[in-house]
Each structure stands twice: as C-alpha cells, then as structure tokens.
Amino acid sequence: MFDWISGFIDAVGLAGIALLMFIENVFPPIPSELIMPLAGFNAASGEHNLFAVITAGSAGSLAGAVLWYWVGMRIGTDRLKRLARRHGRWLTISPDEIDQSNAWFKRHGGMAVMVGRLIPTVRTFISVPAGVSEMSFLKFLTYSTVGTVAWTSFLTLAGYWLQSQYEKVSAWMNPVSTSVVILILAWYLWRVATYRRRVPKEGSTQ
C-alpha cells in the first residue's frame, strides 16, 4: 500500500493528500498512519510545503468528519430510538440508553469529539453521536479541528523528521490501530451478549 499511496500523492499532489484523508475518515481501511507520514516524508524531500501538507490532510479529514456528523443529524434521536426498539440487541443499545447517551454527550461531547479524533478507528465514527445529540455545528467543528490538526500534525511531523525511516511510524502505529479495533469488537460482542441483563424489557422482545 505504501507504493500505491506514494504514487497517488506524487500524481495528484496536495489534493491527493486531502482526498486520501477524506476517504480514510469515510472508509477506514486506508489508514492515516500510512498517508500522513508518507506525505511528511515528501515534504522533507522538498516536494511539498510542510504547512500545506498538514493543512491538506486536516482539511480532508475534517470533511470526512463533517459527513459523518451530517449522517448523525439525518438519523436523529427519534429514528435511532425506533431502530433500538426493533434491533436493540444488535445495536447494543436501548431507547433509554440513547437518552442517557445524548444527555452525557451534551455535557461532555466537546471533549469526547476532540479526544476521539486522536484515537484510531474511533475518530471515524465519533462524529455520528455528535450529530445525533444535535451538538451545535460550530462547537463540533471547533473540537474536531483541534483533535484533527493535532493528529495530522503528529503523523506528518513524524514522517518529516524520520524522513527515509518514516516506515517506522507505520510499524509502531499499525499494532496500536489493530489493538483498538480488537478492543472495539470485543466491547461490541460483550454488549450483545449482556443485552438482556442490562435492558430485560427491551431484550425480551428480541
């Protein structure tokens, strides 16, 4: 994948970096842990301006976050609660838990969005509950920008400073990303298995 990403960035330039980061936020299998260190390496070799690379990567990533935020807004609380009544076990959440989640998100959502943008896999989907809970777009965009720029800058600067050794960033980050995915999958399976115990009334209708 390194060669493909490198060739794409060489061919399309900064717009290619933005597009790849947008796709990474919509379709996670193309990881930012590969895209941005490689873009940073290209900046170190003089092909692109470092600030422009960070800006392009952050802009593409934010565009993906806004798309998921819009999806959450379109789904809305009422529709999500109807889905929870019908398919609560597989969604791992009940209508009451949705209300509790919205209340929590309205109190702490800004920090959750900012930190979530720093966590592999989580950063892709943290925008959905922000939209569902109707967090103001300005607040969402502000916290998302802080988290996104921090993450994008870290990866880009790692590739910039390591230069030809930028593959080490991927070698270190890939196991971290894999571990996060495994933990999320394990958490989901646990939520499915314990659904009746947590919400017996809804679970009895599944």
Rank of each mutant, 00 (worst) to 15 (best):
Q100M: 01
G60V: 02
K81L: 06
I98N: 09
R89E: 11
I93M: 14
P95E: 07
I93A: 07
P95G: 11
I98W: 07
W104A: 12
L83H: 02
R74C: 11
I75Q: 06
D96Q: 14
A56C: 04
G72N: 10
A84C: 10
K106W: 00
W90Q: 15
L91K: 12
I98Q: 10
G88L: 01
D78L: 13
S94G: 14
L91W: 08
R107W: 08
I93G: 06
R89S: 04
H87G: 15
W104M: 08
I54N: 00
A59N: 00
A63M: 11
I93H: 05
R107L: 11
T92Q: 06
L80N: 12
A84P: 09
R85I: 01
L83R: 05
N102L: 03
I75M: 09
Y69N: 08
E97F: 04
G57N: 04
S101G: 12
A59G: 02
S58P: 00
R82C: 06
K81N: 12
S94P: 14
N102Q: 10
R86V: 06
R89W: 02
V71K: 00
A65V: 03
S94F: 12
I54K: 02
V53I: 08
L83T: 02
L91N: 11
S58H: 00
S101V: 04
S58V: 00
G64A: 06
S61Q: 04
P95C: 08
D78W: 03
V53G: 07
S58N: 01
H108V: 03
T92S: 13
H87D: 13
R89G: 02
R79S: 14
L62G: 05
R107T: 13
T92G: 07
I75S: 06
R89Q: 11
L62D: 01
H87V: 04
R107M: 05
Y69G: 08
I75P: 03
R89Y: 07
G57E: 05
G72E: 10
S58F: 00
I98E: 07
R85V: 05
D99V: 08
L80Q: 11
A65L: 03
D78C: 02
G72Y: 01
A59I: 07
L83N: 07
